[in-house]
């Protein structure tokens, strides 16, 4: 069974068609890219998947379950985590808390447990802590666990955001322009990190990215959209040669 199945997804904002008849079928454990010129509707696709927008038409199925009408936190609970184009960490809470809170959907204790500090509460908080520390350690963030995100360099903030997404234990990880604003050594680090996540976790990674270096060195499959419509879908080699893609990026040369 496929992990994510999108059929005929369309989203209109007033008269503007941001996403038009978008289809994709992602299996378990894939590394895929979504590319396209600015304003092509890429982020809108991610927003639709995470439940931030509701589709105008079409369906999104996660592990066979239609996500229609689900609120974003419910979609996340199904195993979809994401990062944001501009970093959206909770800036006034330290990194450890940022990673703890993203486990909200599987807290496993009630408000009453919280007030009474029951055995269940203590046990669950310990488990949450353990997962958070494990991730911090694995992603080389242990030293900044008690730092506030806004005091960290941009590259580290990106890593924290990815760590936060991973603490959801996602089966689908959506990365929205993870390399944006990074310098070249940070980009190298990012490529390594994504590769490492892909190798160590049973997760399908789907990224929007403009830096072709990142896309070409990581992804096995690339989908290209322009003006909300899919114009190409294939392996990196195929995409590089695709005429429609070149036209979308560089313009029509047959004037």
């Amino acid at each position: 069974m496929s992990l994510l199945e999108i059929n005929g997804l369309t989203r209109r904002f007033g008269g503007l068609i941001a996403v038009n008849d978008f289809n994709i079928d992602l299996g378990e454990h894939e590394l895929v890219a979504l590319i396209g010129p600015n304003g092509a509707g890429k982020t809108t696709v991610f927003n639709l998947i995470s439940g931030f927008y509701q589709p105008s038409e079409g369906s999104i199925k996660l592990k066979g379950k239609d996500t229609k009408g689900l609120r974003p936190h419910q979609v996340t609970a199904l195993g979809v985590a994401r990062t944001f184009q501009g970093i959206r960490l909770w800036g006034e809470m330290h990194v450890l808390d940022n990673i703890r809170i993203a486990q909200h959907y599987r807290l496993g204790y009630s408000l009453l447990d919280c007030f009474l500090r029951t055995k269940n509460y203590v046990h669950r908080e310990k488990a949450i802590d353990a997962i958070a520390w494990e991730l911090l350690e694995a992603m080389d963030l242990k030293d900044v666990a008690y730092e506030l995100p806004r005091n960290l360099p941009y590259g580290v903030q990106r890593r924290v955001e990815i760590a936060r997404a991973m603490s959801v234990k996602p089966s689908l990880l959506l990365l929205d322009e993870p390399a944006a604003g990074l310098n070249s050594s940070d980009v190298e680090g990012l490529i390594k990190l994504v590769r490492w996540i892909y190798d160590n976790f049973p997760v399908t990674i789907w990224m929007i990215e403009h830096q072709m270096k990142v896309v070409m060195s990581l992804c096995t499959r690339i989908k290209v959209i322009d003006f909300g419509t899919t114009i190409a879908d294939g392996s990196p080699d195929e995409i590089q040669k695709n005429h429609a893609v070149i036209k979308a990026y560089l313009g029509d040369d047959t004037i």
Binding site: S50, G51, F52, R71, P72, H73, T76, A77, A81, R82, F84, R88, L89, W90, G91, E92, M93, D97, R100, I101, A102, Q103, H104, Y105, L107, Y109, L111, C114, F115, R117, Y121, E125, I128, R164, A165, V168
Partner: peptide
């Protein structure tokens, strides 16, 4: 007890970035 629990910290997450909170699984 409430504000020091992971549950209660969801409240601060809302104040700092509500959209991120909702999307990172905070109801």
């Amino acid at each position: 007890r409430f504000v020091s629990s992971t549950l209660g910290k969801g409240v601060s997450a809302i104040s700092q970035d509500e959209i991120a909170a909702e999307i990172m699984s905070v109801d």
